[in-house]
Structure formats: structure tokens, C-alpha cells
Design a protein around this nucleic acid. Structure first.
Lengths: 334, 334
DNA sequence: AGTTAAAAGTAAAACGTTTTACTATTTCAA
DNA sequence: TTGAAATAGTAAAACGTTTTACTTTTAACT
């Protein structure tokens, strides 16, 4: 069964296609279409269940009312929660979100950008990875609104919304130090983006400011794409071989791997071994004892992302780039 | 900067639009275009970075190479994990997935269907909710491939892939009984879909088969859309007021609320109080003691969904409906 | 009574593709 | 040397909208 077109409606109502189009788009008044005709056409549309073909519409107008969201991995709870919030807020403004995961693959990221481009999404919300700078610069050059969140690419100048990773990390380490810890480890990834390096910088600076010598042996950089088993092995080595009394995990999935290790080697979290995880997760609240975490302000991040995007979409001219850094919250659990 | 069109390429190559189109779509040979021309055009396409406008393409061909995925909530780990798997597999076959959450709202579900429809997605993968039967029936009548997963709607006849909820639930309860439990509670939701009612039926049947009287007081039906605080309150009441030695949670988020209650009232899981959760979650593995769970076969579900969809998409005729029920796995953790 | 302005509506081009039906040239067998 | 078949390619219609520029009718004012 072919679906109805504007032509069918026009025929049924005995008016021109143009008239129907004006009515659909709420321009009837301004184009001086009579009440009688408006009512008639609207009734027919209602009864027939006609919905305009968005593809034809996009082809003609050049925009789609769709915002593309590119993230690392939708099955990571940080991203899925933020995706949900962004979707919610965009939806209320009449925008739809389509999202896809890069899985940290440069090739897939590029393909996704191409797919979104050839589908003419109106704007891009991206948690970027290294290696796609050129592609993104092209998007920007072509006049597409692009906004980064969570991660940033210093080479690209565009708006960015993210948490204050440096300070969150600094404060975490400081809280360890205040508890009297001296041998503080950092488990992080080797992804080379500011969002991650800032956590490292915060770690280092906090040690330095409190006159604790930095020890490279206590920093474990996990390769970003490896199997969890391998990660667990490396963390186990760290915990077994080094003398450690506190550890900061730079992402929630690293923390989860770390907790699995602790369970396996039967090491208890307590007075002589403290843990803080970056990015909250349901497992941390439930854990006994509760795992302290750095909570990213998801709601605020989503809010600001959407706010910036919508502002740009409704403006004729290119707005100035903004860097919105939102403090993260250290949640201490016992 | 306007993006290139096929026309630009044709002009540059000094050939017709038709020729370029044939080359792009790999029909050059069959349409007898000479090697020389093919090479020339391909080189130009390569150099210029031209990408066909998918919108125009969709408008003309009537399909989009996009599959719409409608789920309840992308921030629920069951859905986000399955979404990721489906996305992965579809991607490898050249299909893109766009997904959106219904949040258990009939209105939003209907809107999503309309949005997908007006964007001409090639197929629909839906975890359905009550109240959208009519809309889905229309999709099917219009000849769209539709496949349900996780949940089913008995009124609609279409393919379905899901876990064997009845037996999973039955086995869970049986394992309680084998441990000598007598007062077994069920915490479930009041969503009225087979996927949920089967879990209830399995619970009841297992009790019955082992001559344990069914007690309505031990079944708590949580309203599907309420705040977590309220849920926690109700579960707390159940745990405090009734004499219970085991509990099956029918979804992972209910189990998480339940674990929070246990932590709060300081009730320990152990010999005299057992727990099984439906749908695994990282928190369950990490929990001390580990929480036993019914693991849904995510990989197989995703696999079968995609397999059925692709089969339908590549077939001219409507294939017969299939109901694929996959056993779930009871994981006992100590 | 004649002019102008407003009201009510429409024809047709354009968006960027795919595809059908066609033309013109070359090859080759009889 | 003819004519059929193969080769190499193209013009134009169609997909379903939006929008510009236009026409016709009615009303309003001198």
C-alpha cells in the first residue's frame, strides 16, 4: 500500500498542492488562505492520517531536524545515560537524535561522520577521538554546528562542554593525602585526549603540592581497546607487586575491572586501602563498602550541550565558541 | 560551502549524470561504460571527496538502508548492550541503526513510529509496549518488516525473538526450593506484557509443582513508571514485614533497588536469605556476595534479530513469521 | 466608474538522485 | 555490403516536498 502524498490530499480537497503545503506548515494565514479551506484540508489530513514525507522535505529544505550524536560506546553507562538526557531534551524542542558508537575506531568514526553528513543532520554532538580532526574541521568549514562534549580536541576550535577533570582528579588525590595515604596509584588509559590527560595532570599536581614524590611505577596506563582479561591481569600485577595504599581509577570501566581484581585476590577496601572511581556507576553505590566516586554532572552537561546547539541552530550567524567547564563532585562513600 | 552533487562530477568528467550514477552504483559494466570513463570518473570522485546525497537517493529509491530500533530506555544496561550488539551486526551488513527510547510512554512510542515511518526506515526492530498495537499493525499492513524482541504483543502476528522467561523463572524458583526455601517472594512490575507475566507464571508453577502454597502477599508488583524512592519504600516494607527467605527480582533495575534496601536495613544475603536477579548487571558480579542472576542470551538475541531482518529485507516476498525462544541461563554466584 | 489594494489561491521550478527508454556508433557474420 | 547485435552513452521523468512569482477575484476608496 503506497503511502499518501501531498498530491493525494490536494486532489481530495480539490485545491492545489501549494495550498496544502502552506496549511501543513502553518503559513496559511500569512499566505491568505481562507478559514474554510484550512478547515477542510485539515480535516482531510486528520482523517487520512497523512504524514509528510520527511525525506522529500529534507531534500527540498536542506535540513532534517535531526541531530547526530557520536559517542564512544552506547553500552557504557556514562554515555547511555547522557545520551538519554540529550535525547530527552532535544525531543522537547522538536529535534530527534540519532546516535552511533565509534568503538574508539577512527575508521568507524569517519564513516559515521560521512553517514551523518550524507543524511544532512542539522548538527553534530561529538565525543571525539584523536585522528578525526580533519573530518571534523571539514564539517565546521562547511558551516555545520559541531559541539564536543566529555572530550575535546585542542587542535579544533569549537564549543565544548565537559567536567573539570583536572580539579576533580586533584581533589580526589588530595582527599587520599588527607587520610594519610602516601602510595597512591592511578589506573588510567592511554587514550591521548585532554579529558584523560587532565586527570593525570591533576594526580601529579596534587602529589607535588603535598611534597609526595611522583613514582611512575604507580601509574598504570591501560591500552584503550584491549580485552578485559588483560586489563584485569595488569591491575592484579600492580596491586600485588607494588606497595599501594590508595588508588584512583580514571574511568568507571577501569574501576569495575579493578574491583573484580580486589575480589579475586581477596583484598579488602578499608582503612589501609582506599579507592576512588571516576564516573559513577550503580555498582559503586551497591558495593560493600560503597565506592567513592567522582560524579560527573551529567544533567548539566546534557543541558548545556543542547542549549548551545539550539542557540546555534536558531541563529543565522556563526556564534562564538564557548568552553563550558562544569565542576565534578567527589562523593565519599563508606 | 555547498557540497558537491553528482552534477558537478558529471561536468568535471565531461560525461552525463547518468554515467556517473551508473559508476557509483557499480552498474557501469552491465551498462557498458568503458574502462577509461570509469577510471576517469572514479578518480574525480576520489579526489573531490564527493559523497552521494542519501536523502535524494532515499527519495528516489524509497529505501534508506536504515533500520529503526525502538526500545524502552537506552540508559538501561540490558537495552544499551543489546543495542550495541545489534548496531554492530547491522553495520557489518551495510545497515545503519537509529534508535530511540519510548520511556514506556505510548504517545512517545507512536511518535517514534511516525518519525521512523516518515523517514522511510527499511525495517523496524521493536521492544513493544501495550497500546501501540494499531500503529504496528499498520506498519505491517504497509509491508514493512517488523520484528519484536524481548517483549511480544500477542495480538500482533509478526516475528519475535526472546528468552524463555517462563522456564528461566521456573528454574530460579526451583533452585530456591532445592535449597530448602519455603517463603519465596517475587518482586516484579505491573507492565502487562507476556515477557513479564511469563516470569510470574513460572514462579507460580514452580511453587505449585513443589506443593508450596502460593501467597499473594509475597508478590510485589511495582508500578512501572514510578520514582525509585517509592520502589525502595515498597520493597523495604516487603522485606521488613513478611517472613521471607528468598526473593526473585523480575528485572535488573528492581534488583538494584532491592539491593539498596538490603544495604539500608542491613540485611545480609546468605544461608537464610537468597536472591536471584533477572537480567545480569555488572553490579551483581561485583557484589559481595555475588548475586545469582538469570542471564539473557544477549548475543543470540541480537544475532537472531538481525538474521531475521536481513533475511526479510533481501526477500521479495513476505516470509513466514518466526518465534525464536532462546533459553536463558541461570548463573549461580556465591 | 475607474483605480488600487487586499484576499485567495495556483503553476512551476528546484532539491539530487535513479532508472527507463532511447540514440549513435562500431563490430561482425553471412 | 547489408543488417543485426553489441558497445557506449545520454535525455528526461520521477520521487514528494517547499517556495517564488504569478493570476484572478473581491473589496474599498475616490
Amino acid at each position: 500500500m503506497k503511502s499518501l502524498s501531498i498530491k493525494d490530499i490536494a486532489t481530495k480537497a480539490n485545491v492545489s498542492i501549494t495550498t496544502v503545503s502552506f496549511i501543513i506548515n502553518g503559513k496559511a494565514k500569512e499566505k491568505s488562505i481562507s478559514e474554510a479551506v484550512i478547515d477542510k484540508v485539515q480535516k482531510i489530513i486528520e482523517e487520512s492520517g497523512y504524514k509528510p514525507n520527511q525525506i522529500a522535505r529534507s531534500l527540498r529544505t536542506g535540513n532534517s531536524n535531526i541531530i547526530g550524536l557520536i559517542i564512544e560506546d552506547i553500552s557504557n553507562s556514562f554515555f547511555s545515560r547522557i545520551a538519554r538526557l540529550i535525547e530527552d531534551k532535544a525531543y522537547k524542542k522538536g529535534y530527534k537524535i540519532i546516535y552511533s558508537s565509534t568503538e574508539n575506531s577512527v575508521d568507524k568514526a569517519k564513516e559515521l561522520i560521512n553517514m551523518f553528513k550524507s543524511r544532512k543532520v542539522d548538527a553534530y554532538i561529538i565525543s571525539p577521538i584523536k585522528g578525526i580532526e580533519e573530518d571534523i574541521q571539514m564539517l565546521i568549514n562547511d558551516g555545520n554546528p559541531v559541539i564536543f562534549f566529555d572530550r575535546n580536541l585542542p587542535e579544533i576550535s569549537t564549543s565544548y562542554v565537559g567536567a573539570d577533570h583536572f580539579n576533580a582528579s586533584y581533589q580526589s588525590i588530595e582527599s587520599f593525602i588527607n587520610q594519610g595515604k602516601k602510595n597512591i596509584a592511578l589506573v588510567t588509559t592511554d587514550i591521548n585526549v585532554p579529558q584523560i590527560t587532565e586527570r593525570y595532570d591533576g594526580y601529579r599536581k596534587a602529589l607535588e603540592d603535598h611534597n609526595i614524590p611522583y613514582n611512575d611505577d604507580l601509574v598504570l596506563k591501560i591500552h584503550f581497546n584491549q580485552e578485559e582479561d588483560e586489563t584485569i591481569g595488569q591491575i592484579k600485577e600492580l596491586f600485588n607487586d607494588k606497595n599501594i595504599d590508595a588508588v584512583l581509577f580514571a574511568t568507571n570501566y577501569l574501576a569495575i575491572s579493578g574491583l573484580k581484581v580486589l575480589k579475586k585476590i581477596n583484598k579488602k577496601i578499608g582503612a589501609d586501602f582506599s579507592v576512588i572511581a571516576y564516573d559513577d556507576h550503580e555498582a559503586f553505590e551497591l558495593h560493600t563498602p560503597g565506592i567513592s566516586t567522582v560524579q560527573q554532572p551529567l544533567e548539566e552537561i546534557a543541558e548545556n550541550v543542547i542549549m548551545l546547539i539550539l542557540k546555534q541552530l536558531s541563529s543565522k550567524t556563526k556564534l562564538e565558541d564557548q568552553q563550558i567547564i562544569i565542576p565534578a563532585k567527589l562523593i565519599i562513600r563508606e
